[in-house]
């Protein structure tokens, strides 16, 4: 999260609503370690990353559901083992578990 502090500060100061997604667990080969974070604000601006670019698009959608209040704070996973052939996954074969929440704390 350290690398997005400046952006988070700026958005908070501007009073933006923000959703925060953090990597909490990585199984197998994963590009980023637990603690990697990305944030999405109400204007759709995105900062940070949680993978090598493999799942960021899907994370933005999840974050927007949280921003719209359709979902509360929750865990979401992306991985090779997903049953849905069309699901987004990591090309390196690992699974990452994220925790997504409203950044209101």
């Amino acid at each position: 999260m350290r690398e997005i502090l400046d952006d988070l500060d700026r958005w908070r100061e501007a009073g933006k609503r923000i959703a925060l997604a953090r990597v909490v667990e990585v199984e197998g080969s994963g590009p980023r370690d637990p603690g990697a974070a990305m944030a999405v604000n109400e204007d759709g601006e995105v900062v940070g990353s949680v993978s090598g670019g493999c799942v960021e698009g899907a994370v933005v959608e999840v974050a927007q559901e949280v921003l719209r209040g359709e979902k509360g704070p929750h865990r979401v996973s992306f991985g090779y083992s997903d049953d849905d052939a069309f699901a987004v996954g990591l090309t390196c074969g690992g699974t990452i578990h994220l925790y997504v929440e409203l950044f209101d704390w």
């Binding site: 909490v24 509360g72 704070p73 929750h74 865990r75 925790y99 929440e101 704390w105």
Partner: peptide, 8 residues
Amino acid sequence: LIEGGPVG
């Protein structure tokens, strides 16, 4: 806390 209680 991410599971099993007051999440968040």
